[in-house]
Design a protein around this nucleic acid. Structure first.
Lengths: 197, 197, 197, 197
DNA sequence: CATGAATGAGTTTTCATTCAT
DNA sequence: AATGAATGAAAACTCATTCAT
């Protein structure tokens, strides 16, 4: 099994270059949402992005590097949302913060269920680079901090359980065709509160 | 994307043939548990199974057919276990039956987390054959029947939520290296009871 | 710079397979003699050999592996010839054995000068596998033994000087279009005897 | 095989431009000495030279043109040295002039053996431009003139033999790690005098 | 039935070269 | 002149699948 290089190659400086990188990432995400990992080929990504295959490889040394970068972006955005959700947690009720967290979780996954599932599966075999591992750790810490602030026993395990259960549930709903975020949110709330009760 | 033929080719009658088919399935499962979908190649499966690539294609017309057959077997076994768990549900408490169901769920996934995750992901893009779709439907029905027997409102959605949340949670625990089925079982119980409360 | 795998993949057992491997090696040698290293591509080798690109990769994991195998074969044959030349050296005059050695050297290079030159250059950047390194060492030892048997001082350095000078000279003659082995042989004799005088 | 344009594009007039050209040539030579022909890529040359790829193509229309120019420079310098060595040949002994010639040959190759070898191999497939062919011819003529001045029979062939043998020998010594020019010089002297005896 | 050599479409990837800024 | 983003032809290499023995 080859170990692909995953660090981005050069940081785009000119505006044109930035646009190319964004086009590549969006094209890849789009392909994943439509057809999953097995339809993601570098040539197809380049074609959908409207750039040449050479341009793609200017910025990403491998397919894995693109996947890794999408994961990193998604994680960064999720972390931001979760941190925003817990920002005022010291002045808020447990329920209020939890609701914000769950809304963020639902929003980040429900509308791109195949993409989410593909990235989640990709994570299981990609050697994530440092930055993404740190992001994952911070996401986890955000949840653990929230749980500990409310005296939940065994917060680390509880955080992991909740995160993985919620991921599964939201993906399941999305793949089944659900689009009503509010309805799903209420069920995730029941799940989370029930588990933590 | 080509649409692969997925029905097994010929039902093996002779003992030697049955042994080959089992060897193929076990080899494939083993490869999935070790390296995931991207390491599953037909030549490698044949090699690990100790049969020639020609023999493999005697019994399975495509790689997808092997995957599908593994899923079918797993599902059939799970269905059996779930049906056994609900067999006496009319004479038992809600809690007693639920515990049996969850034990079955934990047992079926915890010790092969990468295999479970890979199959789950494979399901999202494979065109499952009739028999497996029926099995999935029966699994679902078993849960729905149990929930309805205990007057749970919105049983179909609840069943789906629980199944996908539990799958996520058990996989998450397994991938994190947990092996204590009893401890995990207790947490799944909390999750399920909490959600249904 | 990637480090290509150079060990042959599978040893051909059936006659058909052996024929394929020979066809590949001959095609590669032919291409090198006609156009040099820069015209040697795996697809072209397969085409000239009359096998599919897949077949080529069944037996050689990389272009480098093919080159390495050609070098190994050439070296093995040369070693054989040199050993034959020195077989009777204890009962022969210095001049008699030297003549045999030089005839072998001229024969092994003169008629394929571009091939020789390409392989020689290839050796300078290929990570030769064990077997070929051993062959090179044995070739060297054969010359050193011959020189020491005749009380030549500084035999190891003299052997290296002679081998590299003769290689250069024979290649030079071949590339210049010479084909008269006898005439060239006589000049190599002058060179060698002069250097050792 | 495409036939690349090899004549330099424009003669740099400004000081900055001359500096760029020199940087390019030195970078290319450096890369050849470190990694050989297969590591010589235009983008890498530009990077090492500290100029943009666009600038490189301002002065050289192709990769081959750079190689050709390096060869031309090397040859020009060697010719100068050889001509200097034979300048006084009419008033000197055969041995004295030969020694000067061999010192020049050793100096020009010993310290950059991989570069020498790469250029030598490159010459075998590059379509050398007029100027370099003339230089090569002049180098040859210089040797031939020297040999004929001392009544060597068959001077043209002898010149070729000596040049190619010495090239091989000096390269061989360099690649083997020798750095003592004096010691090597003495052995080349033995080789040349022996051959011409 | 079993074998394993052979196939070739499809992918990844490189790198010389062009061209808009 | 200089820059560096973009190009795409061409190469390396994989792997599902077929078929002669």
């Amino acid at each position: 099994m080859k170990q692909a290089q995953i660090n981005p190659r050069k940081t785009p400086k000119q505006a044109r270059a930035k646009a190319s990188v964004q086009a590549i990432l969006q094209a890849a995400a789009h392909i994943l949402e439509r057809g999953g990992l097995e339809t993601l080929t570098t040539n197809y990504v380049a074609e959908v992005a409207g750039v040449s295959i050479g341009t793609l490889y200017q910025y990403y040394p491998s397919k894995e590097a693109i996947l890794t970068d999408i994961i990193r972006q998604k994680r960064a955005r999720l972390l931001e949302d979760l941190q925003a959700a817990t920002l005022a947690m010291r002045n808020e009720s447990f329920d209020a913060t939890l609701a914000k967290l769950l809304r963020a979780a639902v929003e980040s996954q429900l509308h791109w269920p195949k993409l989410s599932k593909a990235l989640e599966y990709a994570e299981s075999f990609l050697p994530l680079e440092q930055e993404t591992r740190v992001l994952n750790e911070q996401i986890n810490q955000t949840i653990v901090a929230f749980l500990e602030h409310h005296q939940v026993a065994g917060a680390p395990v509880a955080a992991r359980d909740l995160v993985s259960a919620l991921r599964g549930m939201i993906d399941g709903a999305g793949l089944a065709g659900e689009t009503d975020a509010q309805a799903l949110f209420e069920r995730t709330l029941r799940l989370a509160k029930g588990y933590l009760a």
